[in-house]
Structures are given as structure tokens and as C-alpha cells.
Amino acid sequence: MRKIKVATVQMDSQHDKASNLQKAERLIREAAGQGAQYVALPEYFNFVGTEEQEEANAEYIPDGETVQFLSRLSKELNIWLHGGSMLEKVRGEVKFYNATVLFNPQGELVGKYRKIHLFDVEIESGPSYLESQTKDFGREVVVCDTDFAKIGLAICYDIRFPELFRLQSLKGAEILMLPAEFTLYTGRDHWETLLRARAIENQAYVIAPGQIGKKPSYQSYGRSMIVDPWGTVIATATDAEMVTVAEIDLDYVQQIRKQVPSLKNRRPEVYSLHLS
């Protein structure tokens, strides 16, 4: 049986990067102390601030402070460490990327994904935020190999675009990652439903560590979740900064895919889109 203990780290990150990293380290160590072999952080875990503060807090990958921090801890604690997301700067480019990274227990960077779907949303009587004002769009679907499963990488608003997760599952992903800073306004009605839908339709585990707390633009929803391939929520965080640990069984993914072969029964030959 391919069982592994995984953990979500839920945080209320703010504009003080040093404080955020200190808090993240404490929670990562707590997760490892509970036996987690794979630990996942939320979106923008190292910095949440105003657009005016972004330049000073964006980092190069793999040379930045935060990447080195993650590499050191993954190696010391002998864990797989998923780095939520951070602002990535690129030499010669004006805009940043919202990027996530994955480290193996040797402290090696084994995967990086840049958020494809940016949060450009204006809701009447709700949040208004244009992520693309200062960030550029990612252009690559990423699935990482590990010694226990293939993992698809995504970030927050990506959850509303099922095409991305279907492509990941067709590339062999058995775990779908979604670090998030979901808004309270949409989170109350959509967060759990969307996570369970992506798990059910792709017959994969979904691991979704979230932010809580009041941010410069909106209130974050939190409720970090781990969902199994049947769509059952097997772990949920409460409204606090905390670690949530659950054991997942990757053989269960294959069992579900055999029992309900919806991926095998696809008809891609008739899926072409014709717009008038």
C-alpha cells in the first residue's frame, strides 16, 4: 500500500516577510513532528502586502531567501516541502509571477509552476482585485514526479478552470495541489464545492492549504482541506493558524479509477469546440 502522511499549513501571512518565515518554520516543524512526510504551505505564505510593497519582497528563483529557507528545512526535516506560492521576479521583466515550488527530502528544487489563471475579478458588493496589474500569466501545465506519486501544481483561482486539472490527471497526476488565498466572499459558497468537484472528476487527492485573516484587499476564507478521490473531505482546518495532518493512500486512487473508469471512458474525438 502506498500510504503517506500529508499536512496543510494554514497561515495569516502579512507584510513582514521575516515574521512570516519564522511562523512558517514553526508550523512546518510542527507538521513534521506529527509525522507528516509531505508538508504544504498556502499561497503567498512569505508575504502578503500592497502592490507598492511587492518589488521589495519579490525574489528570484532559485536564488532567493525563501527558496533557500525551504530547501534548508526540507533537507533538515527529511520531508517533501511544497512552498505554497511567492512573488517571483525575473531579470529583464517588469511584472512578477505568482510561483509555487516543490522540494524533495534532499533539499532539491524538483518543480516550479507559475499561476496560469490570474485573479482579475470585480464582484458587486464583494472583492475587487486585478492580479494581472503586477503579475504575468504562467504558460505551462506542471506535473512533478515524486517517489510516492505524481503531483499536479496549481494555485488558488486556477481551481475554477477544470481543463487544467484534467490535463494534469491525463499526465498521471494522483495528487492535485492548490495553495490558496481564497476570499471569504466566494469561499463560503464555492471553496469546498470546487475542491470536491476537482477531486471527483479527476479521481485524485486534492490538497489545499489556505490563508486566513484580513488582507489589504479582502478577508481570506481559510478552511484548508484535504479531499480524497471519492470527493470526501478527510481533513479540514478551523479558523486559526494551524497544521492539519491526514494519511492518504495512493492505491485508493487506482482503486477508484478502476471502479468508476470515467477517465478511461472519455471521448476526446468529439470534444472539439466549434464557435459560431
Rank of each mutant, 00 (worst) to 15 (best):
N20D: 03
P209C: 02
A32E: 11
L73H: 05
A36R: 04
E269A: 10
D63G: 13
S19P: 00
Q259W: 06
F182Y: 13
D136F: 05
D147F: 09
L250N: 11
V270G: 08
Q203G: 04
Y221M: 02
F182C: 02
K95W: 00
L273V: 14
E52F: 11
L275S: 03
G210E: 13
F45E: 02
S71F: 12
A149L: 07
L130I: 09
F161V: 11
V143R: 01
V94L: 10
Q10A: 00
A40F: 05
L21D: 04
D145Y: 07
K115C: 11
R26H: 13
K258H: 13
F148L: 01
M86A: 08
Q255A: 13
Q14W: 11
D16Q: 01
D136P: 01
S74F: 07
D136Q: 13
I123Q: 03
N202K: 11
Y129L: 15
R257E: 01
L77N: 04
H15F: 07
G35Q: 06
D120M: 08
E163L: 09
H274A: 02
Q37S: 12
T238C: 06
V233W: 01
A240T: 03
E54A: 08
K89G: 02
F69Y: 12
I207M: 09
G172D: 04
E59S: 08
S19E: 15
E108C: 06
L263H: 11
Q53M: 15
S71C: 10
S272Y: 12
T193E: 15
G222S: 08
E192W: 04
L21M: 14
F161A: 06
N20R: 03
K95Q: 06
G35R: 06
A204L: 04
V9P: 13
F96S: 03
K89H: 04
Y185C: 01
Y271T: 09
E65D: 10
T238K: 15
K112T: 13
N104S: 12
E76Q: 09
A180W: 00
D136A: 14
N98W: 03
T100S: 07
G187I: 11
R166G: 07
H274W: 08
I256H: 10
D16H: 12
A56H: 03
I155P: 01
G138A: 11
R72S: 13
L167H: 06
T232G: 05
A208L: 06
I256M: 09
R266N: 00
E88W: 02
E65P: 07
S169Q: 15
H82A: 10
R72T: 07
T236S: 06
A246F: 08
S85C: 06
R257G: 09
P42N: 14
A235H: 00
M1Y: 15
S169A: 14
R26E: 15
R26F: 14
K214L: 15
V110Q: 05
E241A: 04
L77V: 05
Q106G: 12
V6A: 13
I207E: 00
V142R: 05
P162F: 06
S132I: 09
L21Q: 04
E65M: 07
